[in-house]
Design a protein around this nucleic acid. Structure first.
Length: 626
RNA sequence: CGGGGCGUAGCUUAGCCUGGUAAAGCGCUUGGUUUGGGACCAAGAGAGCGGAGGUUCGAAUCCUCUCGCCCCGACCA
């Protein structure tokens, strides 16, 4: 039955056509209401009833075994704890407990953004192609295959928004007409869709995920700088409140485009990004963006005559080193790439000093291409006339754009391929023996290389990108013709910034950092509940009564508490609560009738027995220290 | 996209090589006994083996196609 058949049709019509099962789903009978509505029991009129929850009524389903498809700790534990349930690759249902975690994170995000005067909005997720062609991104996103696109009944192209620059820019263009209305900063927290090449690691890289996107609109660059700083401040406050260890790194602007961006990275071994940092000066950058100090090599002196040498089966830098007994620093490997732009594609040649590697992100940016990919054998043969392993600048067809890394600038007498199978050239001097290459920084920085800012050394850690802030400038506003009337009396494009936070990813990143062999260890700020009152034996009246009493006491004091009144054996209950990861558990057990309970801290497993009378106060005290 | 692996009960798996009409643990239901670290006994319910086609007297097992899921890789010449 399609959902549509259950709407816009009268109940009478439905009744004639639908099965009883469908009917009862569409018009469920109300379950008998309790004689006394629960809310009426909240004793203080005008005061909201205390947040309260009983585990016996909460949907919790923990698994004893690790799910077969979970690899990293956060995925494994979130799935085992029943926090997430997979619907398909990269698509998850969030359980009530997970949703509480996410809502807590969203609340933190909202509070900190609101503090910086951002305003929350709701934007369409289903978006028309026109919006994306107006910014020029439809092609790129379709080329990359990252965007879910579809057609409506009229055959019009639509997409599920992977991000919201276009929609928001169009909206602000409509709503804002004067510089007097600026600056403005709008944000939304909604689902985004990306057809990831490889969804994985549970919530880390999903195809549908929750993201906070904020967009700032300023009249000029100085205004953008201020907005950017405010968001930087908000982001630091947000991740500080989550208690995670994170680092802020320089980043490539990627498909979003624009100049200037930083990523907020949660440090974790399972992170998908590599971060290079310097302890000496605090330089930190995504490896995609990172620079490293260039170690100069001695110039090889006056240009000498070009020599051609037979080098059968010598294809790699390492083989060349042996064959010529020359260090890789005097070699220029020439790598062929297939680059794609919106309106064309071509093979380009990139020269890199033999001891260094090419950073494809930098290359892509240098070419202003949509994408670059190593050329395949056929393309290499077509461009160089030689087999793989013998490419060089000499005699390369004019149609092949030649780029070179800055490490080769001014270098003479290089060793390169000859574009002839089985031959390499000595004393190659680009410009004399070949076209003059365009020099760019195309190097891939690596751990162990020198810091680009000081004489320190770069080190590497892995990180999970949970936030990203960009200075977009007028890239989108110009492309889309989104302008306001400036003070000068002339229309000017908005100067924009955009700022994202992975709302569903962050809790997963937090779990990567906060777990042990027993399960999750939520930081207080994100835990689905801060305190659990656990009644160990739900059949003993003394325990149940005391548990209820303590639970009510916590609730009355506004503590984020739940009562674990499930009927399960003590061992199972302990294991379950540990897996779920609540910061504090108040165990009401065998000494309940003597008036004693036990406080357990999840973080270090410490237990202490306290008198029931002072239990709530003691818990609040412990919570304050978490 | 390339390579590899896996789809059997709600979950984790066995069975497949060597075809004979599906098994275990956990979970679930009922009854009873238990109750401070994933309790015990008894009785049950629950899958026709991802899907389609083929071979065969007979297919979870063999073959073909297909779908789904997981992992690795995506070439530095």
């Amino acid at each position: 039955m399609s959902p549509r058949s259950c709407t816009g049709v009268s109940p009478g019509e439905l009744r004639r056509h639908l099965t009883r099962a469908c009917l009862s789903a569409a018009f469920p009978r109300p379950s008998p209401a309790p004689r006394v509505p629960i809310r009426a029991r909240a004793s203080h009129p005008g005061q909201r009833p205390p947040k309260a929850m009983r585990f016996s009524q909460l949907l919790i389903h923990t698994l004893r075994d690790d799910p077969a498809d979970a690899e990293v700790p956060s995925h494994r534990l979130l799935a085992r704890g029943g926090y997430i349930v997979k619907a398909a690759a990269g698509l998850y249902s969030y359980s009530p407990l997970m949703w509480r975690v996410i809502k807590k994170f969203m609340r933190i995000v909202r509070e900190e953004l609101d503090r910086e005067s951002a305003q929350e909005v709701m934007l369409p997720i289903l978006q028309p192609k026109e919006l994306w062609t107006s910014s020029g991104r439809w092609d790129r996103y379709v080329t990359d295959g990252i965007m879910f696109s579809l057609q409506d009944r009229k055959g019009a192209d639509m997409c599920l928004g992977p991000t919201h620059e276009e929609v928001i820019t169009a909206y602000v263009d409509t709503a804002v007409s004067s510089y007097k209305q600026l600056p403005i900063n709008l944000y939304q927290i909604q689902d985004k869709f990306r057809d990831e090449i490889r969804p994985r690691f549970g919530l880390m890289r999903g195809r549908e995920f929750i993201m906070m996107d904020a967009y700032s609109f300023d009249a000029d660059q100085a205004g953008l700088d201020v907005s950017y700083q405010r968001m930087d401040r908000a982001y630091r406050a947000i991740f500080d409140r989550c208690g995670v260890k994170y680092t802020v790194v320089d980043a490539d602007a990627g498909a979003i485009g624009g100049a200037g961006s930083q990523e907020f990275m949660v440090v974790a071994d399972t992170g998908e990004d590599a971060i290079l940092y310097c302890d000496a000066c605090k330089y930190a950058a995504n490896v995609e963006k990172a620079d490293a100090r260039l170690v100069a090599v001695p110039n090889q002196g006056e240009a000498k005559p070009l020599e051609k040498h037979a080098t059968p089966e010598v294809r790699t830098v390492q083989q060349l080193e042996e064959f010529f007994s020359l260090p890789p620093q005097v070699m220029a490997k020439t790598v062929l790439y297939h680059a794609v732009w919106a309106d064309r594609e071509a093979v380009v040649a990139v020269m890199m000093r033999g001891d260094l590697e090419i950073n494809e992100v930098k290359l892509c940016n240098a070419l202003d291409a949509l994408a670059v990919k190593l050329a395949d054998e056929t393309q290499i043969r077509a461009a160089t006339g030689a087999e793989v392993g013998f490419a060089g600048p000499v005699g390369l067809p004019e149609s092949v754009t030649l780029l070179a890394d800055l490490s080769l600038q001014g270098q003479t007498n290089l060793l390169t391929g000859c574009n002839e199978t089985g031959f390499h050239c000595l004393n190659v001097n680009p410009g004399r023996d070949s076209a003059a290459p365009a020099f760019h920084d195309l190097r891939l920085a690596r751990a162990g290389q020198g810091c680009p800012r000081c004489d320190g050394e770069l080190q590497e850690v892995r990180g999970i990108e949970v936030g990203h802030i960009f200075k977009l400038g007028t890239k989108y506003s110009s492309a889309m013709g989104a302008t306001f009337m400036a003070e000068s009396g002339k229309p000017a494009p908005f100067v924009m910034g955009c700022y994202g936070i992975g709302v569903s990813r962050t809790p997963a990143a937090v779990v990567e950092q906060f777990h042990d062999d027993k399960g999750i260890v939520w930081p207080r700020s994100l835990a689905p509940f801060e305190v659990i009152v656990a009644v160990l034996d739900a059949k003993r009246p003394a325990q149940v009564e005391l548990g209820e009493k303590l639970y009510a006491e916590f609730a009355a004091r506004g503590v984020d508490v739940a009562l674990d009144d499930r009927k399960m054996s003590p061992g199972a209950k302990f294991k379950d609560l540990e897996l779920l990861g609540f910061p504090l558990t108040l165990v009401v057990g065998r000494r309940a009738d003597e008036g004693f309970v036990e406080v357990m801290l999840r973080r270090d497993g410490n237990k202490e027995e306290v008198a029931a009378d002072s239990a709530v106060a003691r818990c609040e005290e412990l919570l304050a220290g978490l």
